[in-house]
C-alpha cells in the first residue's frame, strides 16, 4: 500500500484506506487505486487541493469549465455526500459505486430518483421535470413548443404518477422504472466493469 502513504492522506482530505473502501463497495482494491489516479487528475485540474470542486467536475465532464449545466450541477450535489461543496475521495468512490455494473439495483433506482428530485422534497414534481426538459432542449438546441412540452409531461405523469396527485413518489418511481428499465441505463458505466479502461489509470507502485 505504498501508494497510499500518510503523506497522500494529508494531501487528499477525506482520503480513506482503499482496502476499507473496497470492502464497502463493488470495487476491488486495485480498482479503488485506479480510481484514485483518476481522482488525482480531476482534483488537480483547477486547484491542486486534493478535492474536486464544481468547476473541476464540470471540466471533467464537458472539457469546459465555464459551461453551467443543470444536470452536472445535480450530479455534483449528489456526489457531494457530506454537503461541503466539494467531493473528497471517499465521496467519489462511494458515488461511483452506484454506477458499477454489480451495484444493487435498489441503489441505482434510489440515486436516479434523487437526480430528478431537484429540490430534494422526496417527490419528483412536474415543475422539476419541466425544468429539466427545458434545460435539455436548450442544450441540444432542439425547439419544442410549450404545448408540446406540456403534452410530454401529461403523458409522463399519466404513466408514472399512479395516484394522480401531480408528483411522483419513491414507490411510483420504483414501479415506473421497473416498467421502463431503459431509464436506468445511465446508472451503469461500462468503464467500471472489471478489466476495462479504468485500469489505464492504475498507479504503478514501485
Amino acid at each position: 500500500m505504498g501508494c497510499f502513504s500518510s503523506k497522500a492522506r494529508r494531501q487528499f482530505p477525506g482520503h480513506e484506506d482503499p482496502v476499507s473502501l473496497a470492502s464497502q463497495t463493488a470495487f476491488t482494491v486495485s480498482e479503488v487505486e485506479a480510481l484514485f489516479e483518476l481522482y488525482k487528475s480531476i482534483s488537480s485540474s483547477v486547484i491542486d487541493d486534493g478535492l474536486i470542486n464544481k468547476e473541476e467536475f464540470q471540466l471533467a465532464i464537458f472539457k469546459n469549465r465555464k459551461k453551467e449545466n443543470l444536470f452536472a450541477n445535480r450530479i455534483f450535489d449528489l456526489f457531494d455526500v457530506k454537503r461541503k461543496g466539494v467531493i473528497d475521495f471517499s465521496d467519489f468512490v462511494r458515488s461511483l459505486n452506484v454506477f458499477h455494473p454489480n451495484a444493487q439495483l435498489e441503489d441505482k433506482i434510489d440515486f436516479s430518483f434523487k437526480l430528478y428530485d431537484l429540490d430534494s422534497t422526496g417527490f419528483i414534481e412536474r415543475q422539476e421535470v419541466k425544468q429539466m426538459l427545458i434545460a435539455l432542449l436548450c442544450e441540444s438546441e432542439m425547439k419544442l413548443a410549450d404545448e408540446t412540452i406540456e403534452l410530454i409531461l401529461d403523458k409522463t405523469f399519466l404513466e408514472a404518477d399512479v395516484n394522480q396527485d401531480g408528483k411522483i413518489d419513491k414507490y411510483e418511481w420504483n414501479n415506473f422504472v421497473s416498467k421502463n428499465p431503459s431509464l436506468l441505463k445511465i446508472m451503469t458505466l461500462p468503464y467500471l466493469r472489471y478489466g476495462t479502461s479504468l485500469f489505464y489509470f492504475i498507479y504503478r507502485c514501485d
Binding site: 483518476l38 444536470f71 421535470v129 426538459l133 403523458k155 408514472a160 421502463n180
Partner: peptide, 25 residues
C-alpha cells in the same frame, strides 16, 4: 419523435447525464 417518448426517456438521453466523459482524457 420526442412526443412519443416520456420525459424521463428524453432527459436520460442528454449528453450531460453521461458520466463516461469522466474516464476520457
Amino acid at each position: 419523435k420526442p412526443v412519443s417518448m416520456n420525459a424521463f426517456e428524453l432527459i436520460s438521453r442528454s449528453k450531460s447525464f453521461n458520466l463516461e466523459n469522466l474516464f476520457e482524457k
